[in-house]
Amino acid sequence: MNNLSHKTRYCCSGLLALTLAACGDGHSVATTPATPPPPTPVVTYQFEIEVTNLTQAQPISPVAAVLQTSGRLWTVGQPASVALERLAEAGDNSAILGDSQVTAKASLSGMLLPGTSAKMTIETTEMVNYLSVLGMPVNTNDAFSGLTGFDLRTLAVNSARIFDTPVYDAGTEGNSESAASVPGPAAGGEGFNSQRDDVNQVRMHSGVVSQQDGLSSSALLEAHRFDNPMLKIRIMRTK
């Protein structure tokens, strides 16, 4: 139904210069006396994004995919945005998805469990340049994994790129690994806290230590440790 009404509107505007009257009542183009010029086709760009969680025991918060005409969501050595801080501390991707720079978006609907894959589709009618895909390993203080600034113009229809993404530290919360500060099921602690008690720079993550490996105040177990890469992200241009 959506498609149909969209098409009708489109035809009308295409004919606007020729027959204004035809648009008023929404009647079909068959009533138009002159042969209409072929409308410029609406080009749809579509990308299928498949994400695989490569960890032992780190559920990944709902993975967000966003398109932007410019810019990156993070740079090593630079402070994290508040939107990134929310994702990395609480697994909350709403601020990333809601950013005014975002021209198209998609999100996985739930946690991506270890060893599982899930797909989402992102669609746009204007080719935008840059894709970012990211999620939080929830049994950490402020880690995230993903890619940012991938130039989609390099991807032809029906071709795919696969990224093995490393783990970053948002640098917004000290890695205490405490039960009070890690939001995932291993701890059940606090998510977002606007206070920044860490280096205030995005850096590569040094890994979680865990209680068994020598951090006695840690709520994490050895199984929550990880190494790079954390996610496999396959981007396929389908249209």
Binding site: V76, N175, E177, S206, V209, L215, S216, N228
Partner: peptide
């Protein structure tokens, strides 16, 4: 293989802090 570190800044086995001085590859771009 990475550093071990520990959570005891005035004793323990290591003088390194296991929350700060560990790393995962890569270390540079």
């Amino acid at each position: 293989r990475g550093s071990l570190g520990d959570d005891n800044l005035s004793g323990g086995k290591s003088d390194l802090d296991n929350r700060v001085h560990r790393w995962l590859n890569p270390v540079a771009r």
